[in-house]
Design a protein around this nucleic acid. Structure first.
Lengths: 193, 193
DNA sequence: CGAAAATTTGATCGAAGTCAATCATTGTGG
DNA sequence: CCACAATGATTGACTTCGATCAAATTTTCG
């Protein structure tokens, strides 16, 4: 999978980009491969890059009283960044970690801004990604708010099928706001029926 | 407070709008006053309007198993709409209700799109509002996820001071994902120290 | 003023948390 | 390539926060 193909994925999955825009995006971005467990952003850093996941997976997490809490998962065709730092220009409360051997397309905020100024379509792309994220977060609040632990797991599996095969359960538990023990009990209860 | 002054509030609080853009926005929008308890959007409707709150307050809520669950509060200088319907063009799961006698500036999605096409600054304004909302939702997830009922109340009071004076506690309780009874007990425990 | 809505208070219960021990899987260095 | 350490997952016993159900009290408003 080369850079041009990766950019085509974005154009296809999100919103159309003109040939000129794609060429310039290509010049401004890099394809990178990472090992599992690579940390892309550390807590306290100023995060200035956006990553598009061509292959693999990543997560955003933060430390809550020393405990690792996963806040976001990203898989193929998803974007990921440390949103608070990226948008508010503050030190990142989040870590971003690659959780599978991955191929990512990286582009800096600076270049995103240049492209957004020059190409209306690229600006739209940004808006579409942010809107999608906003709506996903809103849905997640509904799920967190009034579902039991086992309903939360079901909702997650609907939204991200196979996630339990790809991601350690401890990350899933903290993402759902339940303990690892509870998640384990829920899963076993399921297959006991 | 007239329409021009309201539009100035947007320009000041969110992002600069040129005189021409303001004039056209003025032509495309209406200032409206509403009584408390007015429903602006009903469940099932296609929501095509965005509202800016000049004075007063509104909330978005949905019915979860027949129970009224508040999902969003908006006060002076906030925008409110039925986000799922507005952005996804689906029947709204939300109601939007005015909860104080209010003055609102109303603008349709159609006009927003026209203005966004014509004025880059107006398009940016949209992006800024969506980004702000996204970040707020993300913060709210953190709060919901790992705080006790009483910490949730504290977090809310930090973000929206005086909300307990302006909004019935039942709405606050459902917004926080706790029962009215628990909220009542928490509040009384506070002043008993 | 009286009805409806909002809030408080009390008693009881249960889902999920905590703490602790064990079991399973993964991966790395000798 | 095996051993054993590190990481991840399961199971058990016990506790707790907040839910539920019920009733009383206060506030709001036509």
């Amino acid at each position: 999978m080369n850079k041009e193909q990766s950019i085509d994925l974005i154009s296809t999955n999100y919103s159309f980009l003109s040939p000129e825009c794609k060429i310039e995006l290509s010049a401004f971005s890099q394809i990178l491969t990472f090992d599992k467990k690579t940390i892309l952003v550390k807590e306290g850093q100023f995060a200035t890059n956006m990553y598009f996941i061509v292959k693999g997976a990543a997560r955003a997490y933060y430390l809550k009283d020393g405990k690792d809490v996963t806040d976001w998962f990203a898989f193929e065709n998803d974007f990921i960044c440390a949103i608070n730092s990226f948008f508010l220009k503050i030190p990142s409360p989040h870590y971003i970690e690659v959780i599978e051997p991955s191929i990512l397309l990286k582009i800096s905020k600076e270049h995103i801004e240049k492209l957004s100024d020059k190409y209306r379509e690229f600006d739209s792309l940004g808006k579409i990604i942010i809107t999608k994220t906003m709506l996903q977060l809103q849905q997640r609040i509904v799920s967190i708010q009034f579902e039991t632990a086992s309903q939360k797991l079901e909702s997650l599996e609907e939204n991200l099928p196979n996630i339990t095969q790809r991601v350690p359960l401890m990350h899933i538990a903290s993402y759902l706001g339940i303990t690892l023990e509870t998640l384990s009990r829920i899963r076993n209860a399921k297959y006991r029926i």
